[in-house]
């Protein structure tokens, strides 16, 4: 129909009429399909974009003449689509892997919550209250919580603790000296930084300061005659000074998920190596 050097390829007009027909049909389809829910916004969006891409292809190939045009112009368009895909991909990957908040969570909410907690609030939480103790109990007994190693009643007889050496602390046992002590500050430091050489990990990254203090108060309800003054006031003070630990929403997850399984396994493997 056209030889290589003829740029002025005369396209039969029927191509153009059929292209418009196709475009109008696809428009009707995309409007019609928008009344159906394919399960999620992502699915609905995918369907709409697929139809839009089909329409765009018709415009590009027939109205804009890429069907009959040089490879240079076609290649320019393909390269541009590729660059747009890169743009979308990396932004999408970033958003998708942000663990600080789930989609739908409001950024402003998270930010203001982080700014809300102050030293005054933490001083508040140092005093045991029924609410804090109840919250601590909930965390202790929750999925993947402390009970897995320390037992439901805090006797150190939890299932996951069986392989650990030294065994998990029996909170009812005051006969041997506790490594850090039994004061509020002592237990908070233990929860935050763990105890070296044992299976007790530090949970600073997993639990917010308030959650750790709630657990502290609950555990102290199990300890017979817990001491008021511990050996770790200095450590406690320095932990609280650490900016990262300040704030209601601490660490990688906005909700405490308890002790991650892989962390427990890590500890058990470390113990086995000894």
């Amino acid at each position: 129909m056209s030889d290589k050097h003829d740029n002025h390829h005369i396209v039969p007009l029927s191509y153009y009429y059929f292209t418009l027909g196709g475009l109008l049909v696809l428009t009707a389809i995309t409007v019609g399909v928008s009344y159906f829910n394919f399960g999620s916004m992502a699915a609905n969006l995918a369907v709409a974009m697929a139809i839009a891409s089909a329409k765009a292809s018709l415009v590009l190939f027939f109205f804009m003449g890429l069907r009959w045009d040089s490879a240079l112009n076609r290649g320019t368009m393909v390269a541009t689509i590729a660059f747009l895909a890169v743009f979308f991909f990396f932004v999408g990957a970033d958003l998708g892997y942000r663990e600080e908040w789930e989609s739908g969570t409001k950024y402003a909410e998270v930010k203001s919550a982080a700014a809300a907690a102050s030293m005054a609030e933490i001083k508040e939480w140092e005093r045991p209250s029924p609410d804090l103790v109840a919250k601590g109990k909930e965390l202790y007994l929750g999925a993947g919580g402390c009970a897995t190693c320390h037992g439901n009643a805090g006797k150190g007889d939890g299932i996951a603790g069986g392989a650990l050496n030294p065994k998990p602390r029996n909170f009812e046992d005051n006969s041997s000296a506790w490594t850090n002590g039994t004061s509020v500050q002592s237990i908070y430091v233990t929860l935050t930084s763990g105890i070296k050489g044992t299976g007790m990990a530090g949970y600073q990254a997993m639990l917010s300061p308030k959650d750790r203090l709630a657990l502290t108060h609950f555990i102290r309800t199990i300890i017979p005659d817990p001491q008021g003054n511990g050996k770790v006031d200095a450590q406690y003070a320095s932990i609280l000074k650490d900016k990262d630990s300040i704030g209601e929403e601490g660490g990688a997850s906005s909700q405490s998920k308890g002790i991650p399984i892989d962390l427990a396994i890590d500890q058990m493997l470390k113990e086995k190596k000894k």
């Binding site: 409007v31 928008s34 916004m41 139809i51 804009m64």
Partner: peptide, 23 residues
């Protein structure tokens, strides 16, 4: 000018569903 005009059409083909249709 025709090519430009088709591009304007092309952009609207994508604007329409994302603002008016997708829920």
């Amino acid at each position: 000018v025709g090519l430009y005009w088709h591009l304007v059409d092309l952009i609207w083909i994508f604007l329409f569903p994302i603002f008016y249709l997708v829920v």
